[in-house]
């Protein structure tokens, strides 16, 4: 009788997934996602594209917060850096789109390196406040460096062109973000199973103990910041191509908090958790919008407060999840799985 889930060999431990069924389902999911735009209308395709783009950034954030244990309240800053880098590179310097996406990732990673340096000396709350300061400074620079960033006017971006094909329709952006998300997931999973991911988990659990074990804190903390910022930058870059108009308002502090609420809802330190969290929060948002839309017919007072309703919702979701389900949806899923796979000897 099965009495638990055991890993018996080193090969199994470093496998991408130790369960072939899970692997098969994951590829079926990707296939379903690839076919989805054929049945969805343009509105839902664009929402699904937003989910995919957000998931890229959130996986990056989860690598930093969930896996390495370094709290960042300033990820909206990296997203802004990625988006504006893309805008400036493609519009002012005529860099081809695909190269601009990659470059935006590296530019954001460079900023990640700079923000990461204080993390070598700061811990916990001091670090959280420093990252928040970074996001505030970035927003201020964008607003005031009008020659480069167009200031409060915002930036209009042409659609992405690759070999003459223009990514204008919602479906094309959807496929672009799906491909990049699959690459991101594969990359993140590979990082997690390599010595880098293990070092990160060690730093999260106890950084001094990790140092004693021979993990170079400087290298791995900075690497975590860079990788995380890289993914956020890529997400920002695709976001810029999706919206085709970016403004500093797209990258408010609330966005950084929304991002944290996503990883808390999904589950800290889990890649599938990041994706589940993104889906949960974005569809909750849409639900609020649709329900307020229904009630808005009788005078329109509800729709006036849509932004506030969203804020209230994030607040309530964060508080409730931390209070009742601190491991997030993925934690609950693990519990249920444990219960059944070990039945009747679950504990």
């Amino acid at each position: 009788m099965r009495s638990g889930h055991f890993i018996e060999s080193y090969d199994k431990l470093v496998n991408l997934t130790d369960n072939p069924v899970k692997m098969a389902w994951s590829w079926i999911l990707v296939l379903v996602l690839a076919l989805a735009p054929l049945v969805l209308d343009s509105f839902w395709t664009s929402i699904c594209a937003t989910v995919l783009i957000t998931a890229i950034g959130i996986i990056g954030l989860n690598l930093l917060v969930g896996t390495t244990g370094q709290i960042s309240l300033g990820h909206s800053g990296f997203l802004a850096v990625g988006a504006y880098a893309t805008a400036i590179l493609t519009m002012d310097y005529q860099v081809p789109g695909i190269i601009a996406i990659l470059l935006s990732g590296f530019i954001a990673a460079f900023f990640g390196l700079i923000v990461g340096i204080p993390s070598l000396r700061l811990k916990g709350l001091y670090l959280a406040i420093t990252t928040m300061a970074f996001a505030i400074i970035i927003n201020h620079v964008i607003l005031n460096a009008e020659d480069i960033t167009r200031g409060s006017e915002g930036f209009i971006i042409d659609p992405l062109q690759v070999f003459g094909f223009s990514f204008e329709s919602d479906a094309s952006i959807y496929y672009l973000s799906l491909i990049i998300l699959v690459l991101t997931v594969l990359g993140a999973l590979n990082l997690m199973r390599s010595h880098i991911g293990r070092a990160w988990v060690g730093i999260r659990d106890h950084d001094i103990a990790a140092k004693v074990m021979g993990i170079n804190l400087t290298t791995y903390k900075l690497l975590a910041f860079m990788v995380s910022a890289f993914f956020a930058g890529i997400a920002g870059s695709i976001l810029a191509f999706q919206l085709q108009y970016i403004n500093v308002d797209n990258f408010s502090l609330l966005l950084g908090i929304e991002a944290l609420s996503m990883i808390i809802v999904g589950g800290l330190g889990s890649i599938s958790g990041s994706i589940v969290g993104v889906i949960f929060i974005i569809f909750l948002n849409e639900l609020v919008r649709i329900t307020t839309g229904i009630f808005a017919d009788d005078g329109g007072t509800m729709s006036l407060y849509i932004h506030e309703m969203k804020g209230l919702l994030y607040g309530v979701v964060i508080v409730l999840f931390l209070r009742f389900e601190p491991d997030g949806i993925m934690g609950k899923w693990r519990d249920i799985k444990n219960y059944w796979s070990n039945w009747p000897f679950h504990h």
Binding site: L260, S261, H307, M309, L322
Partner: peptide
């Protein structure tokens, strides 16, 4: 994080 959640919620309530 709970206090951050509270912050966002209070902000919304005040405006409402």
């Amino acid at each position: 994080m709970v206090t951050i959640g509270l912050a966002v919620a209070i902000r919304a309530i005040v405006v409402m």
